[in-house]
């Protein structure tokens, strides 16, 4: 089950270089966890980053740098143990590794929220994210969201199941990038429940999968 819709190479370079916002970085990390080819491409760019870091002339550290560092170490305690407990929540456990900590923490603070016709959303608090939105959407088989347009760029990564719209079929690991002006009406396929990590860039009006969810939430709050 190899993804067929990949991030463009330039998005992988932007990620490797850190020239990307945290939400788009999360999408790239999750796609990388589900796609061996893109994982290898990211690793290639990151290896270049490591080599370039080595070539930088060292900056002078503060005179008390090492002692300040060791004092922080004292407050820190011993290194973390390597084992990571599998999340108790089965939905969280099914998510790609890079998403599990954030989704697990979020679920500790707030529940999934029902939107329309069995569609649920989990709003993720990506720390310090100024604008835009990050959500996991859960769409039962045969359900969809109404036809909608996009005010900004929307990145949708299929985590499980599949959906189809006029642009094609998107299965697990596939990334769909919708630009401003695109309209689409995704419908979840039968089979596994469709979960999507959806991210919108900051935009004056939020539309897309997320925009729909937010408008609905706004009406019910």
């Amino acid at each position: 089950m190899t993804p067929t819709h990949h991030p463009p190479l330039e998005l992988l370079l932007d990620y490797a270089a850190g020239a990307i916002d945290p939400a788009a970085a999360l999408i790239v990390q999750c796609h990388g966890a589900m796609c061996a080819d893109c994982r290898a491409a990211i690793a290639t760019f990151e290896a270049a980053g490591g080599a370039l870091l080595d070539q930088l002339p060292p900056a002078a550290l503060a005179p008390d740098g090492l002692s300040a560092m060791l004092a922080r170490l004292d407050r820190e305690g011993p290194p973390d143990r390597p084992e990571i407990a599998a999340p108790a929540d089965p939905v969280i456990a099914s998510l790609p590794g890079p998403l599990q900590p954030l989704a697990g923490q979020t679920l500790g603070r707030r529940p999934w929220r029902s939107l329309i016709a069995g569609v649920r959303a989990l709003d993720l608090d990506l720390p310090g994210r100024a604008a835009g939105a990050v959500q996991i959407l859960e769409i039962p088989a045969g359900r969809g969201v109404p036809r909608h347009g996009h005010g900004g760029r929307e990145l949708s990564l299929v985590l499980s199941g599949a959906y189809a719209d006029a642009g094609g079929r998107y299965g697990a690991g596939d990334l769909q990038i919708a630009g401003p002006g695109d309209t689409h009406r995704p419908i979840a396929e039968s089979g596994d429940i469709c979960r999507v990590l959806a991210v919108t860039d900051s935009a004056p009006r939020l539309t897309g999968l997320l925009g729909i969810a937010q408008k609905i939430l706004g009406n019910f709050r």
């Binding site: 490797a16 270089a17 850190g18 690793a43 990151e46 290896a47 980053g49 490591g50 080599a51 370039l52 870091l53 080595d54």
Partner: peptide, 12 residues
């Protein structure tokens, strides 16, 4: 990965 690359990704 090398330590340099690993550390680079943390800094990035």
């Amino acid at each position: 990965s090398s330590v340099s690359t690993w550390l680079y990704t943390i800094a990035r």
